[in-house]
């Protein structure tokens, strides 16, 4: 579903991703790990279409369409969803109004308010979201955990085909992490073709959502790929334990 070839991305003339390649099939769960500042969040934002970043070369194909030619909202309407590390607070825009507008934009159909309200209520209970959060301004005054739950509420309503979880686990306590991961797993169970990219530093997340592939991102590119054992090795011994040919050459 997603194929990234030879991608080179920079910001303010600083190269963040270089010769980056990644291929994701339908229904696969991939993890991207790497030290701080290597470009993990940049990857999420570039896939979503944030024009802060300059694409110098390379291509991203999504279901055989050139993603780089699509606007942000077109990517969203095609089923790409990013949970942001720091979800935006938007004063004055009621969460519920936003959700209605967003679902209407994605489905391009008149909203069945009764069905929508039932779905939101069920998700509110599933995610243990307080009722007043639905009617307050988007993310304003929400705790870190509430913001992340709100992201997963949106994810469930917008029914994406590619989910990118950018450090979803930051700001979440153990119980809340379990709640949001259960919700994601339930969504994936009901949408078997949906793929996930998980960006994380923590083991707990991967205990809850089992990945098919684990990639290590360093120096702007993926330097090693494996399964959960690779993640466990990093959790145990750190990124210094990753020794690739390229890194050996650098040393």
């Amino acid at each position: 579903m997603l194929e990234i070839n030879n991608l080179n991305v920079s910001i303010d003339k600083k190269i963040i991703l270089d010769n980056f390649n990644l291929k994701i099939g339908e229904g696969e769960i991939h993890v991207i790990m790497g030290p701080n500042g290597v470009g993990k969040s940049t990857l999420a934002r570039v896939i979503m279409g944030d024009d802060t970043y300059k694409i110098n070369k390379g291509e991203i194909n999504y279901f055989n369409e050139n993603l780089l030619k699509m606007k942000v909202y077109e990517r969203s309407r095609k089923g790409i969803f990013v949970t942001y590390q720091h979800p935006k607070e938007i004063e004055g825009v009621a969460n519920m109004d936003f959700l209605k507008t967003s679902v209407t934009s994605i489905t391009n159909e008149k909203l069945n308010l009764f069905k929508f309200a039932n779905e939101v209520n069920a998700l509110k209970d599933e995610l243990k979201i307080k009722n007043n959060m639905l009617y307050r301004s988007i993310n304003v005054g929400f705790s870190g955990g509430e913001k992340k739950k709100n992201e997963i509420l949106q994810m469930n309503l917008l029914k994406p085909k590619l989910i990118i979880l950018d450090e979803l686990d930051s700001g979440l306590d153990v119980d809340s992490l379990k709640i949001v991961c259960n919700s994601i797993n339930k969504y994936l169970e009901n949408n078997k073709n949906t793929s996930v990219i998980i960006i994380t530093h923590y083991q707990k997340m991967l205990e809850e959502i089992k990945p098919d592939y684990v990639h290590v991102l360093m120096n702007g590119k993926i330097v090693e790929t494996g399964d959960i054992n690779l993640a466990n090795k990093i959790f145990e011994k750190g990124f210094d334990s990753i020794s690739t040919n390229e890194m050996k050459e650098q040393k």
Binding site: Y73, S76, Q154
Partner: peptide, 12 residues
């Protein structure tokens, strides 16, 4: 803020 809303399907 605009980017956040656009990433949820709203056009500019």
């Amino acid at each position: 803020d605009i980017l956040y809303l656009m990433s949820r399907g709203l056009n500019e």
